[in-house]
């Protein structure tokens, strides 16, 4: 079997930050910074292999064993509930999952609350825990527009600075959970490559202290 540790990184700015952490922790792979269109990069000496994937797909690559470890946002882990180990909170890509709505919004508990979101599972779990009856409208983007056009009462979405909400006369009503990037591992890979995966985890933990 392949003794390389396969690492799935999220494409984009967050992924670049994540790679920098790995590099500083001693898991460098210089070819990753070369200007080309390659998607897979190897450091044969360290026996590691990096690849870039869509951020929301990292958890799938890890859960299905195509990657041994990877970095995914807590939002993705809560939404898809992949069966993986969550080894570290990298403390980057910080934001929060929140309920937002019009500044004038007042919840009427006598009727079903309509919630527009990309994160149906997180929204359902949150309102279930509160015993609140809701109707979820699953959208794939531009969630903020839903309560403005009357499609929903509120939205459940990721909030970073809150600037977009403010510009659209919306505000955070409740914070559901803080979000940041997490180092995750496939449960089977962890059993067969535990020494290397634990070494990577420890060195990264030291690096982000």
């Amino acid at each position: 079997m392949d003794r390389f540790v396969n690492i799935a990184l999220p494409k984009g700015r967050l992924g670049e930050k994540v790679y920098d952490i790995f590099e500083k922790a001693g898991w460098e792979c210089p070819s990753i910074k070369e200007p080309n269109r390659k998607l897979i990069f190897e450091n044969a000496e360290k026996q590691i292999r990096y690849f870039w994937v869509k951020p929301s797909d990292v958890a799938i690559y890890v859960e299905r064993g195509a990657a041994d470890i990877g970095v995914a946002g807590k939002d993705i882990l809560l939404e898809y509930e992949p069966d993986v180990f969550e080894l570290l909170d990298l403390g980057i890509g910080k934001c929060r999952m929140a309920v937002a709505g019009p500044v004038s919004f007042r919840d009427d508990c006598t009727r079903t609350l309509t919630v527009a979101t990309k994160f149906s599972n997180i929204a359902a779990n949150y309102y279930n825990s509160k015993g609140r009856d809701i109707d979820i409208i699953h959208l794939n983007g531009s969630i903020e527009i839903a309560p403005i056009l009357g499609l929903s009462d509120v939205i459940v979405d990721i909030v970073e600075t809150g600037a977009t909400l403010k510009e659209n006369n919306l505000e955070v009503l409740e914070t559901i959970v803080p979000i940041s990037a997490r180092l995750i591992a496939n449960k089977a890979s962890f059993r067969f490559k535990s020494e290397k995966i634990e070494k990577i985890t420890e060195s990264i933990s030291e690096e982000i202290k």
């Binding site: 079997m1 064993g65 496939n186 449960k187 089977a188 067969f192």
Partner: peptide, 25 residues
């Protein structure tokens, strides 16, 4: 000591088996 089964049904020893090359138990 990371694996946990459902405590409503299981007690004592619980276990999972893995084969190299298969990503799930």
């Amino acid at each position: 000591f990371s694996y946990t089964g459902d405590l409503k049904y299981y007690n004592g020893i619980v276990f999972k088996g893995y084969i190299d090359g298969v990503p799930t138990a």
